[in-house]
């Protein structure tokens, strides 16, 4: 469990978190990125860029 950096709501971590994994805050729906695993740190994920896609 971590705190959303945007709204401070509690966000559940997946069982096996990965570095750079994208999470979504259930409260404010901000996209979060796992920035470090030990200790677990999350930040706001980068905004979608113009050339993003498949």
């Amino acid at each position: 469990m971590i705190a959303c950096p945007e709204c401070e709501a509690k966000v559940d971590l997946p069982d096996a978190p990965r570095l750079n994994e994208i999470l979504e805050c259930g409260d404010c729906h901000a996209e979060l990125e796992i920035l470090s695993l030990e200790p677990t740190l999350v930040g706001l994920a980068p905004e979608v860029e113009e050339d993003w896609g498949e």
Partner: peptide, 25 residues
């Protein structure tokens, strides 16, 4: 640079095969 469900599935598939790999951001 962005680990979504698809990338996690790929990492899991590599792990299941016992393949050593490095994730490069």
């Amino acid at each position: 640079s962005r680990i979504r469900a698809d990338e996690k599935r790929i990492f899991d598939a590599l792990d299941r095969r016992g393949v050593s790999y490095v994730h490069v951001d």
